[in-house]
Amino acid sequence: MADATGAEPRVVTEADRGGVLPEPGAAKPDPILSATGIERRFGGVVAVDVAHVEFQRHQITALIGPNGAGKTTLFNLLTGFDQPNAGEWRFNGTSLSGVPPHKVARMGMVRTFQLTKSLTKLTVIENMRLGAPDQRGERFFPALVKGLWSSEEDEITARADELLERFKLDHMREEFAGSLSGGQRKLLEMARALMGSPELVMLDEPMAGVNPALTQSLLGHVKALREEGMSVVFVEHDMDVVHDISDWVVVMAEGRVIAEGTPTDIGRNQAVIDAYLGTHHGEDLHPEIVEHRRLEAEAEAEALEQSAEGDSDDDTAERP
């Protein structure tokens, strides 16, 4: 499937498709991130079963799919927050198998979370400073002597203030992150991720729970990332948003990649429409079964996530 160059494309309409076929697992000219044979099971439920997928550098790729399609699980796997039962994936050609999440981040792939993980009892500026990588003052012994890290801290703060201004959070600088609105937290999290100057930004539902007024500004920021030479992969539900900003769309359903293409391709794709309507290639699945599977898989994923992090705060996870 990855080898698609020989086949005749069925529809060729978009110039910006860049010679890539609109089908699942299509090879990209310069993939920043690629994954093969990724499988993740929770008990008996297969949450993710991706044969092959590639993400193009310097593009905004949207990862969409109905609830429970395995998007967030795939995100967790690719960023090292969860380990697959099988499969291999590479970032800039380096295998990430078994690489812990903090190392993945240091390599230049930084993610955000669907449920914002703002450090609510730190101030906004402290949140930002934390995002800076490789700080001298973050090592035990140098930390004891302020002189050793204060100048670095000043540089970090200056950069943080720039980003805060750009994301229009500068007026909240000294507030606890906990006092921010949901949308502001999303912005803060994105800004914080940028402190590490990543190559690839993985955004898990950046627009979820954000009020419409902020949505446009968020979209603007995401587009700006591409202009600055970063690559972006983001999970989204809202097709309008996807149409607006993404260069390429990958569609997942029931753990698999079922379609790829430009936003326009995807809008016409029958498999995608079926998936969103709860049917799957003629095989009649009762909606209740689908719903049940989804609930089970998500509860599993959530339970697993909790068991990994010991965080009770997520009990109240909203499920859009």
């Binding site: 008990g43 008996g44 068991s307």
Partner: peptide, 12 residues
Amino acid sequence: PEGLFGRRERVG
């Protein structure tokens, strides 16, 4: 850590 009969074998 999930014990001998922990949650991994529970969903069927």
